[in-house]
Design a protein around this nucleic acid. Structure first.
Lengths: 159, 159
DNA sequence: GTCTGCATACTCGGATAAGAGCTGTCCGAGTAGCTTAGG
DNA sequence: CCTAAGCTACTCGGACAGCTCTTATCCGAGTATGCAGAC
């Protein structure tokens, strides 16, 4: 899985803590964790494409959440960065046997594909069950001072 | 996910159908689906390393199952090819904030990592629940003639 | 006829290249705010 | 003093390289088989 997923989730969380009225530039978010700003910008673009974030150009511009944290799941973020395809790619190699096909052999879907699909579905179900709002609440219970510190630092003017 | 996983599962299934006494060369298994023989060999080596297959060199050599199909799970095969690492890599970027750390901030594990870990666990659990014996039985119900055809073709001398 | 030694062909195993995708960087389009000149 | 036009600086967005990992290939080590020759 791409490393951008980790960045994206952390950034979404930080944007949930930031002032709702203001946007946060990609460079500022990158400075928070000393990440390459331009590349992080690329990842955030993907989040914008899926409506998870909104972007504003120009001075005082930047990124903000596109919808409420309760309506953003971890699956949404992962899908935006990684794409919607499932991990296991079934290329139907079973059809390439040297002997001639018997009619009806391939009416049923590939059972290996199905088994992998079940696992993929369980993974997606678990990710979709976790909203950004829930993660945010859990983190706030674990580190009560973190939201305030983050919000202040994001709002402060960089020098 | 690597394409080798698909090949590996199909090959394990075919080896479960093959004569128990004889080994099947990688080239023969590759010919079944018109795959690059040398590269398939590389994937099968990974299965041997994890004890899923056994290999024999020389004439009349080849690969056979390393243990009973009931003791081989889909997770075993995927892990052998892809490695045991979980998909999401937590690099602990939360520790790189510009402000000084408050003691106890990082006593709890990264909650984002935990959430991703839960999804990963659900995926593994689903894969571990499916044994090769179960997949084999399901396929045999769906295509009763397939095991016999496969077994015969694998045993036939290539020309 | 039987045993032994050898040559042969076959198979796996790891070392070695090509290609694709992730990672990282750069520059241009567009915009909001500031400055400045005029009324 | 107020207004408006122009300028400046800032930000996103997409186009352009570098690098790691997957994909693919090749050759050598080892082994069972079959054959030939001697006893």
């Amino acid at each position: 899985m791409s490393e951008g997923v980790e960045w994206a989730v952390h950034c979404c969380l930080n944007l949930a803590w930031a002032d709702a009225g203001r946007g946060v530039p990609a460079a500022r978010l990158a400075a928070l964790y000393q990440l390459p700003a331009a590349y992080l910008n690329k990842q955030l673009q993907a989040l914008v494409r899926d409506g998870i974030l909104m972007s504003t150009s120009g001075p005082r511009g930047g990124f903000r959440l596109g919808r409420r944290p309760a309506d953003i799941t971890l699956l949404d973020i992962v899908t935006a960065i990684e794409g919607a395809d499932e991990a296991f790619r079934c290329t139907e190699i079973r059809r390439r046997t040297p002997w001639p096909h018997t009619q009806g052999d391939f009416r049923d879907p590939c059972l290996i594909h199905q088994a992998m699909g079940r696992a993929d579905l369980a993974w997606r179900r678990e990710l979709a069950a976790q909203t950004l709002a829930e993660v945010k609440a859990t983190v706030e219970r674990s580190a009560p001072g973190l939201p305030g510190r983050t919000r202040e630092w994001l709002a402060a003017t960089p020098h």
